[in-house]
């Protein structure tokens, strides 16, 4: 049921620039530092990057898709695929073309997911990493197509899939076609799974809406980064529906672990080793 005024506020934390600031960098003299929203400590950016963009207190700053690939894939092993796909304004939706243009400039990516093959601890896999800088990682035709192709490629080539999600949900500007991507990607995940393929999903801040209700929740193993917001409905929408403030831990990775919906929380510093181990334990002899 939709109540009046339900949608007056931004749908999720990302939209209002939320829990993890997009650009944590502030200029202070000549040295760039980032101030941690959790402990308020200012840390030089170079030091942060050496620590996977994680503050000493454990707070995880946002990582873009290329940074993630750099830190998770063995050096020089990533081979990008399907990067020639570009969105079009399918239903002549007001303002969409401009938004796409800005998103490309802001993220320096062609779309909201980067796909390819990689080795992680010498384990070959298909890897997709979503990019929140491109229209909040929303899923339209191109995201749906690239993720689908990635799973189809992995199925054909007997590869496991490692997927990092970050998304505000389905891309409204593509109307019903964006909704269809949920079914399309789920079908490809199912085929990969039925063929015995291993799929490891890593949910990062924030993963919501149509991506949560499709491939983000379909992993054989689902990990999440500390404190990541993960849910179907965004917290603001829920707050306005129930007219109550939500507890701060609601929809965090820790909350989901407690409720039994994710396998574990994976701090960034442990991810590479953990994913390598999991991949090597799912090696197939055929």
């Amino acid at each position: 049921m939709l109540k009046k005024g339900l949608f007056k506020q931004p749908k999720n934390e990302l939209e209002k620039g939320g829990r993890m600031p997009k650009k944590p960098v502030s200029e202070q003299g000549t040295e760039l530092t980032s101030q941690c929203p959790a402990c308020n400590l200012k840390t030089p950016v170079t030091m942060l990057l050496d620590n996977f963009n994680v503050c000493n207190c454990g707070y995880h700053f946002q990582f873009n898709a290329r940074q993630r690939i750099d830190f998770i894939a063995d050096e020089g092993s990533f081979c990008e695929m399907f990067d020639n796909l570009e969105s079009v304004d399918i239903i002549s939706f007001p303002g969409y073309e401009g938004k796409l243009k800005n998103a490309k400039l802001a993220s320096k990516e062609r779309e909201a997911v980067v796909c390819g093959t990689a080795e992680i601890g010498k384990n070959k896999c298909a890897l997709f990493v979503m990019e929140s800088g491109f229209m909040m990682g929303s899923m339209g035709s191109v995201v749906g197509e690239k993720v689908t192709r990635m799973f189809e490629y992995a199925t054909e080539n007997n590869l496991p899939v490692v997927g990092y999600t970050v998304s505000g949900g389905a891309r409204m500007q593509e109307g019903i076609i964006s909704l269809m991507q949920m079914a399309k990607t789920s079908g490809a995940v199912k085929r990969h799974s039925d063929a015995g393929g291993f799929y490891l999903a890593v949910l990062t801040h924030p993963t919501t809406g149509g991506v949560t209700a499709s491939f983000a929740s379909e992993g054989d193993i689902i990990l999440a980064e500390p404190q990541a917001l993960i849910g179907f409905a965004g917290p603001r929408v829920i707050e306005q529906t129930i007219r109550k403030k939500l507890p701060p831990e609601f929809q965090t990775a820790e909350f989901l672990l407690d409720k039994g919906f994710i396998d574990n929380i994976a701090p960034r510093k442990d991810q590479k080793q953990l994913i390598s181990k999991l991949l090597s334990m799912h090696k197939r002899s055929w």
């Binding site: 209700a213 491939f215 929740s217 829920i238 129930i242 929809q251 919906f261």
Partner: peptide, 24 residues
């Protein structure tokens, strides 16, 4: 799909995702 604390706590996103996969 219902939007509320209980629905989220009991995996609304997962429930939908499973239907999409299994119906396929």
């Amino acid at each position: 799909a219902f939007c509320g604390i209980g629905a989220e706590e009991r995996g609304q996103g997962l429930a939908i995702a499973e239907n999409l996969m299994e119906m396929m």
